[in-house]
Design a protein around this nucleic acid. Sequence first.
DNA 1: ACCTGCTGGTACATCGATTAACCACCCCGG
DNA 2: CCGGGGTGGTTAATCGATGTACCAGCAGGT
Lengths: 350, 350
Amino acid sequence: MNKRLEGRTAVRPTIKAVAAAAGVSTAAVSQAVNGTGRISEATRRRVLDAATELGWSPSASATALRRARTRTIALVVRRPTDVLGSDPHFSELITGLEGELAPRGYGLLLHLVADIAQESALYERLVAEGRIDGAVLTDARADDPRPELLRGLGLPAVLLGSPDAASPVPRVGLGQQGAGIKEAVAHLLELGHRRVAYIAGPAELLHTRLRLHAFEEALAEAGLAPVAVRHSDFTERAAVDVTEELLALPGRPTALVFPNDSMAVCGIGTAQRAGLRVPGDLSVVGYDNLSLGRWVHPRLTTVDQQVQRVGAAAARTLLAGCGEDVPPPVLDGRPRLVVRESTGPLTPPT
Amino acid sequence: MNKRLEGRTAVRPTIKAVAAAAGVSTAAVSQAVNGTGRISEATRRRVLDAATELGWSPSASATALRRARTRTIALVVRRPTDVLGSDPHFSELITGLEGELAPRGYGLLLHLVADIAQESALYERLVAEGRIDGAVLTDARADDPRPELLRGLGLPAVLLGSPDAASPVPRVGLGQQGAGIKEAVAHLLELGHRRVAYIAGPAELLHTRLRLHAFEEALAEAGLAPVAVRHSDFTERAAVDVTEELLALPGRPTALVFPNDSMAVCGIGTAQRAGLRVPGDLSVVGYDNLSLGRWVHPRLTTVDQQVQRVGAAAARTLLAGCGEDVPPPVLDGRPRLVVRESTGPLTPPT
DNA sequence: ACCTGCTGGTACATCGATTAACCACCCCGG
DNA sequence: CCGGGGTGGTTAATCGATGTACCAGCAGGT
């Protein structure tokens, strides 16, 4: 209070201070706080009181050093395509993760990288420095080097994506990944569409393949083939370019299926600019069920895949891998189509 | 290689192993790596070689314990309104921060909280545990308790917002915060609009006040007053509700100014659904220059405030506060209007 | 009286790195 | 031949918490 020279940094109390205040040894404090060892209820209470009195929490660095546990999980986002910005995916994922991590004292370390090589190098550094206890891998790809890498590094990890496939690390995701797209195609067919085009994500991503496969299969079951299939990099720019190209096609598609909602919204804008009515002349389907889609005009028909719940499940799996005692994640359900206004039957010009 | 029982976790090398490999003491290794002490160039190289050979990096926990420095910065996001998801703000901010933090070995610890009380409690815990070296405070409010709190805790911090005001912690942001809105109003007036309404953010946020004030001032200079001013919570839902209300007003506004782009997009959708043409019957201005806005129909007129650059500047300021030797941030410029298609003169129905 | 067993603690080594204090050695001038 | 001053390291204490090994004291059985 009346210290003349208030230091730049307030000195934080250590376990010693608490021990002194409670009149016990530091070992006793440790045991009282962690519930280990043999400590009478009376002294335990005395210690805890002293701790709150002094505002003491065990130093994370010291505990981490001693226990070789940092209570930190890494989430690395690749951003050549600025997935973080354009894709609501990540905010929802983070929300889901945090909901499970925070209550258990775990933190989420966020990093951005340019490509998968940088990402791998980053994991190696983080592990070498002992900065993290686990990692969440997003955007599973074919021949993904990361699961093998992390297994080799001995770092617990989960890979987001279809839970079916075998993998060096656990996979967490809704089952029947293709179900949403199949539903979307069925919906379009029912509306009378026969010329449907598909805008896919980057070819190297696993879910791109799964969904594309589902799309083609669903069409094939009706004896149809896609008017066109284009791969994209998830950017809004690509959405516009591809849409323009597809709309210029002879035998123009009457329905477009996009790999995410922001692209779908841009696709709608592009179609409207070209003088087409949505859905009168063109139906559009998105993916992810971004909240924005509920309010644009026309409201977006899209696929919901409950990213937030997947995030929560991923966190639990990871915590279990870190030796934490958590209830096993339950993840039922599958991606589901949400029908709104951007899909409909073709209507003659008024 | 031929170990029978490969442990779950690969044993990471320590400084001792490196010392042994290089034939020196651990002190020498430390000095070689940190460039401190007196070490000959020859042994230094030998040590560094041994380190890379073994794939050793100093343990973050041990270093943190010794140096009382974690090389971690906290970013806490309040999400009653899911700012993370709806606002591109955060992705850009994170991008800007990471660009400066990562090259210096700093990490970004991300947390989500419900309200400012939880946020304060979180800072106290993070500091008590010594988990972070600094914090980025977003969404400055009137009577913000956080700067004072963090100063009291001795934690370096920066507050994003107008750099003018005095504050217990440095503030980083573009100057002339109101400039963008003033430009927007001037633009609307020039287009002939006289009935302009303003949808503001939450009243307690500082930038809400600044912008609102700029808005009212700019109108007043032309001898006008706002048709209406409504506060909102940044959600898309609110955008729709407020827009519907304003459009039902007697003496309906001919131009709407929104506090962010996703709300503006929703506002446009709402107007269109009500049968209004944008911009023929209603002009709409957003804020943030979200990339989506470039592609919707009509393309969104908005205000760009270079969040990414602000993020970079914030990171530098913070790093300097942590004793890091960084070039001082330069942050010139001011928010600027980006005119696109969602604003225009009123046009008679065709 | 003496051993056993239990309760409730304490002393000390340890995790991995940093750093102040110290020292061995060599060169050189006097 | 000896002292002074570099050079190039080493030794040992330390950061804060944890956990093993140990010990004091006491009750009870014989």
